[in-house]
Design a protein around this nucleic acid. Structure first.
Lengths: 228, 228
DNA sequence: CGGACCGTTGACTCTTGTCAAAGCCAGTGG
DNA sequence: CCACTGGCTTTGACAAGAGTCAACGGTCCG
């Protein structure tokens, strides 16, 4: 499963380049682009936190692994999202591309140095992390309180909202992740995820094409099913 | 149950006072102290986010309520923790005191204004929110992946770690919250919480006095049970 | 063509939730 | 001083939602 995984040191091969057009760029715009292949690991839990990444293309899975193999996905990072923000010296989760992707690499030390004197940059970091916190807590509510059906429904609505922003066809969601990823995000098994999706299809609430594209047929019903 | 609850507007009666010794104080030190009684609501989900609070004494429960009454506790805020940080115009959860408590009230607008020019303050906010994010994700891993026994064990160890810092007797934890609070934090029912605590007592891993004070008898075993 | 991977479906199990009753403790009022 | 009340916890019996195990099918790719 991890045969394509790249050693955790690999991302150090993508240093932040010298500031060629620095004057025009804030600390969050600089940085070289790194291409990652599907299933390639960007960094691992426990690695020194040398870079912060900004997703430019693709979807990145952020996850935490327990020693016995259980996995909790903490978030899916979409284009525009930042990965690896925080105050700890090491990364505290794994980051892996679900599909071919591009990320911008920002040196942690340079970022922190700049933020120490640039209040607007520091505030941007504050806002980015606050948004992550809101998302994490919302997921926590789902996982802690909702039934399998409610979690799947809420998850789909969440994806719709994200995709809307990136201007996709209304009411159609691409699922770039596998069933096991959805399960590990929502605290369910792949079988349960599959069954709930089948049930939603049977209820004519959604339609699924190729297993990866979901068309919302009855948004109102889906919202009811998502349990507020 | 909510007979002692204070109307959501009440905290506006505690404005930030004029800066009497401003030169010596950063934006996070200023602010009047507000006393809250046990079970008193500090603010509600949806109220305008007029203040950020710093817990000075007691324990504050942060929770999110679903329309049908299910409740997810997002965090317990201990002395030194900040409540209500973020970028949204309204509060996105309820804050309620589990026991008599004191909080310092900081005006949101003043804080934001100051942070816009003071990078070190903005960085402090960034760090505070980052810590909350780490805690939220750690809880998410518990709730999403762990069994009831593992969640309870991890929860107790978490409390031990927090209390250690505030210099309590080693290996003894006070539980200022009720079983229903623990259940709503961990995504379990009160019955399950009670059963697991009983089981831990039977296994001689912990001892419980008065239902509110837990003595850790076998920390190693408890760590094993917490599932990494 | 064959294998690997992923998703779906079915039968069965089990952990946890639900419902109900009893115990415990603190505060109150006679 | 003590019985009463209400809130919280504990315990038990039972139910159900989700997990486990297993088999099958589809798709991609060498």
């Amino acid at each position: 499963m991890f045969s394509e995984t790249v050693s955790s040191a690999d991302y150090s091969k993508f240093p932040v380049p010298s500031m060629r057009h620095a004057a025009a760029e804030s600390g969050l715009e600089r940085g070289s682009i790194r291409r990652v292949k599907a299933k390639e690991q960007i960094f691992c839990d426990g690695d020194p936190r040398t870079h912060v990444f900004r997703v430019e293309q693709g979807v990145i899975t952020l996850s935490k692994l327990l020693s016995d193999g259980r996995r909790q996905i903490i978030d899916f990072a979409y284009p525009g999202d930042y990965i690896g923000l925080g105050v700890l010296p090491d990364y505290v989760f794994d980051a892996q591309a679900t599909c071919a992707a591009k990320v911008r690499c920002l040196s942690t030390s340079a970022l922190e140095q700049e933020a120490a004197t640039d209040a607007s940059l520091a505030l941007k970091l504050y806002k980015a992390v606050s948004a992550e916190l809101t998302a994490a807590r919302s997921l926590l509510v789902s996982v802690g309180q909702k039934t399998a059906m409610e979690r799947i429904s809420a998850f789909l609505l969440n994806l719709v909202a994200r995709n809307q922003k990136s201007g996709a066809e209304a009411g159609v969601v691409r699922l770039p992740m596998r069933r096991s990823d959805i399960g590990d995000l929502l605290g369910l098994t792949i079988e349960t995820v599959s069954r709930m999706i089948t049930k939603l299809r049977m209820m004519r609430v959604i339609d699924v094409v190729n297993g990866t594209e979901v068309r919302i047929l009855n948004r109102g019903r889906l919202e009811e099913l998502a349990g507020e």
